[in-house]
Amino acid sequence: MKVRLATVWFGGCAGCHMSFLDLDEFLIDLAEKVELVYSPVVDVKEYPEDVDVCLIEGAICNEDNLELLHKIRQRTKVLVSFGDCAVTANVPAIRNQLGLGNAESVLQVAYIDNAQHNPCLPKEDGIVPPLLKKVLPVHEVVNVEHFLPGCPPPADRIKALVGQMLAGVEPKLEGAQLKFG
């Protein structure tokens, strides 16, 4: 039976997913072994049950991220924090340094102070998710099994980790393969 793989995109720049696509021909090997059941690159609306592994890109920035992450945790055997934003909260978390209440000030700068047209705060209940007070790395919210640092993690690093997982050994990256940034 094929491994049920999911990838998800939270608060990140999509660079990790781009790097994933850089796996090139390994993607073809991968396609034989895994079934991609949920991902920004496939059109599935609801995160499915019984997922074997999920690569999580991005930090947890808003209520939607938070809700989906909990759902993912419940429905997935193995979570991988995929890239620095997931592992450390990275660039999205720079706003945390501004102190509490920073969600408002970030929105103020982005949508009002620097707006060229139509300055207003995006607000639509049920559509625009409210920002969390503090941006969090994934493992501060739920238990995470494996970590794949890098901004973005280079394709060979992704290949090493996914390869080890598919080979049934405990994934272990070492040395410079764990470099942040």
Binding site: R73, Q74, L79, V142, N143, V144, E145, E170
Partner: peptide
């Protein structure tokens, strides 16, 4: 907040 198999030995 564990996964379906989570038991602290998740590693």
């Amino acid at each position: 907040a564990h996964g379906p198999k989570g038991n602290g030995e998740a590693k």
